[in-house]
Nucleic acid binder design. Structure first.
Lengths: 204, 204, 204, 204
DNA sequence: TTTTAAACGAGACGGTACGTCCTGTCTTGCT
DNA sequence: AGCAAGACAGGACGTACCGTCTCGTTTAAAA
């Protein structure tokens, strides 16, 4: 295990790489996306700007590196044996990730920037949204495999109904996503007459 | 009837105001949010930078002005006599607004920027999200008044379930929001056993 | 004695004129020429910018108005009966004017600006330098009239030798112009072997 | 031998430095001091504004750099063996410098600005006036050394009398400084009965 | 007596330049 | 070869004044 150096001919400095990612993270949390600058990162990481430009194309590129590592690690897929339990578990993990982790802060910044920049949108799709969607579908797939739900079930629609309201609260209305809210979403997804509860037609 | 002013004590130049809003709109559509600059707006509107700074605090402030006018005008509330019809109408208007209007482009830029800037988030809440939420609730309120749904119905939850998936598709997954998708959302909201359809439990 | 008004068809407001001249003077003394601005003068004089532009072409134009009045009033021509006495009197007045009066501050600013701006140079020549030169020549002319000096005397050269060193000290070396210095200049001008004193050839 | 640098850790770009000084010089000659702007210099020198601000504090600071080089080089001190000859030589050089060189244009602008700005005045004193005064005194010091004039001679006074009228003509009266004028000044400085000539008392 | 026109305070306008910050590129000497 | 350092050309920021303009008010001479 060789120690990393400041300038050598053995490849990039791991020391610098980590310092840059941490500086970017810290600056994002402290000052917000618009005031994260390459110069600011370089200064805080005690690194030359050129070292950043050598390995990353932009500040969003740095943030993606900070995001990906954490996102994968965050989610576990404990199989609780039934759909309700698995969905509840999963959605709680999702909400925790989006609202209570450093990676969630990064994700939110990138999701914001994706609205401005098609390149960011594309990479966010590839690096986060798409794998995340696979994670979102997993409980349903397991339920199908188990025979708990029909093979014909429209899982994509079910996922949209389930996670859509969560992202909506996080990005748009800034309302907290409480356990009861998650439960209501799950209830609808699993119930025979799903989601009927709150707003159902009065029987005549 | 009215004479053109070019700056005097009786108020600002309407001519300049409109030129600035149009320039901002055009630049946003052509170049994207990050390349909308005050200097660019001033140049395109044939206006002095100071005239912009005199009346607006930032480029997002300008975009809010461009947004508000259009948002109000966009939505009508035709009372179709039943909840399903009203919701369908309303959601189609919402989707059209978000995805197919100039104002929708502006809204998306501001929603993105709101993830970076708490000030923008606050104003977006006040100027768009909150009144829009009132518009989203209106069909349910009319249905309650009609006796179509129970007084105890949790309208806020119903709205989240209804519009959440739409915003999610527009902002996150970039999937088109087709009529069938809207219909599926509405179906769940109005049905006695709402949303059961695609993913329902297999009866045992 | 009619009171002056704010806006009428009988000509300009004397009140405004004086307030502007005083504001210009004050700002020059307090902040220096470069920070005298039309806006600053207008604000301090509680006057509209247009009122300034109506009557003056530039800030130097205002300062000329402030200068001229005082310059004329400053100099007296008491005839002391002999050249030495008259020159001494006159030079002391000149030095006092240049270094110790409000008008002297204005003059110095305009003399400085004249180095940058040919228009200012021309007006300064007409309004100050040329009449001042007449005042400088007066003692010699009286001495000629009296028969004290020859009709053939080169008065222009004598004036240059006399006042040149004074302006030089005021504008260039920033040395004080003391009475002894004036006396030395006068001594040379009036003596049969003028100015020989300090640096004379050693007799062989 | 030397490679061109365009900015690196080993110091500034000599190329940029020279381009900036030349641009400032040219703009001063073409447009006058007030229309020399940092932006104009940057544009003409094909240089970024920041490069100017990195090395100079103001436009006068740039002009000082343009002045100093030339001033030193301009003056030679040929020892003609006698005071009259040396003074004549020296004054002709001075007049040529002030009125007929690029550096003279710069000097005049700075001398003008020194009347407005104490900082400029101080630096002009240090960088030009004071060393120039040493050059002005040199002929007298050599004459003393030679025994041509007394040890007790007041050289400072003699210099004021000699150069004062020249600066006066250049800055104030805008009269040309002709050889005859120089001769008359020198004549007075060296003659036993110096300066008596033009305006002397009529013998009684 | 009423009308009218000049000068006024106020302040918005299109502009120019300011001095600062950050971008992305480059060059160098060190390790 | 990668690095820290940092100068470079460039572009946008937000501010200060420029000189012009229009407005509505004040006022005394002209009608």
């Amino acid at each position: 295990m060789s120690v990393q150096h400041h300038g050598n001919r053995h490849g990039r400095s791991e020391e610098a790489r980590i310092a840059i990612l941490e500086a970017a993270d810290d600056l994002l949390a402290e000052r917000g996306f618009d005031r994260v600058t390459i110069e600011g990162i370089a200064a805080r990481a005690h690194v030359a700007k050129q070292t950043i430009y050598r390995w990353w194309a932009s500040k969003t590129d740095i943030l993606f590196d900070a995001l990906i590592v954490d996102a994968d690690e965050h989610f576990s897929s404990p199989d609780g044996g039934n759909l309700r339990s698995d969905l509840t578990d999963h959605l709680r993990q999702l909400v925790a990730f989006l609202t209570s982790t450093d990676a969630g802060i990064v994700w939110r910044a990138l999701a914001g920037q994706a609205q401005h920049d098609e390149t960011v949108a594309a990479r966010l799709q590839t690096d986060f949204t798409s794998p995340q969607r696979d994670r979102d579908r997993a409980p349903f797939l397991r339920a199908q495999h188990r025979g708990e739900i029909a093979e014909s079930a429209d899982i994509d629609l079910a996922v949209d109904k389930l996670v859509g309201p969560i992202y909506y609260r996080v990005l748009i209305t800034a309302q907290p996503v409480l356990p009861e809210f998650i439960d209501a979403l799950v209830e609808q997804a699993v119930s025979r007459d799903g989601g009927r509860g709150p707003v159902r037609q009065i029987e005549r």
